[in-house]
Design a protein around this nucleic acid. Structure first.
Ligand SMILES: [Zn+2]
Ligand SMILES: [Zn+2]
Ligand SMILES: [Zn+2]
Ligand SMILES: [Zn+2]
Lengths: 146, 146
DNA sequence: CTTGACCCTGTAGCAACTACAGGGTTTGTA
DNA sequence: TACAAACCCTGTAGTTGCTACAGGGTCAAG
């Protein structure tokens, strides 16, 4: 199968397939007489493996590592667990950060209820206070946004 | 004050300050005889305004818009509210996505309890199933990771 | 024999920085 | 006064995971 069909069957862009090849994630495909890439079932599975891992938010470097475990089934799997754990921690941290952000944004949002001049707007007032180093509703403690 | 001091007082990298200038967020500073940038209190506030907004996750384009409201206090503030609302929705969507991810990762993680060969590891088994288009613990419905 | 769909390579763009390389300046001290 | 550390300058390239061309070649149908 050529690259277009592979892409269609995985729901993945043609350019993305070539990108994965360049990044060393997909095994190099054969070429036909015109230089077109020819893929077999092996690469279809590889690509689906990659897309699945991407859908779990994993960076390509870790997917590359997971692919190595795929090709070496006799290896000790503790590296696999470590990758998952890393990913879980990363996602937890991101969620925590977003949660904090959301609370700050909600607080700030309450400061403006109706249309008015920007100079009178509670949101702008808070932002301008923060710019002067004064506390704002979203960062009540003495400045420095940690 | 020169760029180093400005950076130190805002907890922001020198390169970042120059970057903001290039992006049109900071007003162009004066220069001394040697071509060094010289900043006044105005730019200190601007930079703190920018860093504050960045700490709320806002993209530079929206910060640029907020800075325009700062310079035009007589403008109607409804654009400010709109920016906040957009940002809130964006963060909510990201959190929702991360929540889904986290549940999938947890499910997958339960599949391997101890060290073993990668070929026997429940995590790798799931990933390899998904690569074949079969359902996995993290995506029980017939494939396609939405 | 021409149109359209497909394929190729290589490069540039996105966001928001970060990190040099390769220079000049200032400041403190020996 | 000489030297070095610390600072500043411009400009370019790297980061991540793609996406979007530009400028070409190939192939099947009508
Ligand atoms: Zn308002
Ligand atoms: Zn705040
Ligand atoms: Zn395991
Ligand atoms: Zn799954």
């Amino acid at each position: 199968m050529r690259i277009g069909e592979l892409a269609r069957r995985t729901g993945c862009d043609v350019e993305t397939v070539r990108y994965y090849e360049k990044e060393g994630l997909l095994t190099i495909p054969q070429r036909d007489g015109s230089g077109y890439r020819l893929y077999a079932g092996q690469q279809l599975e590889e690509l689906q493996f990659i897309r699945h891992c991407r859908s779990l938010g994993m960076p390509l470097a870790e997917i590359r590592a997971l692919l190595r475990f795929r090709y070496h089934p006799h290896w000790d799997c503790s590296g696999v667990n470590a990758i998952l754990d890393t990913q879980i921690v990363r996602v937890q941290e991101q969620m925590q950060a977003l949660q904090t952000l959301l609370e700050q944004l909600y607080l700030l949002r309450t400061e403006c209820a109706q249309r008015q001049q920007a100079g009178e707007c509670g949101i702008m007032k808070n932002l301008n206070q923060a710019a002067k180093g004064e506390p704002c509703l979203c960062h009540p403690l003495p400045s420095s946004f940690a």
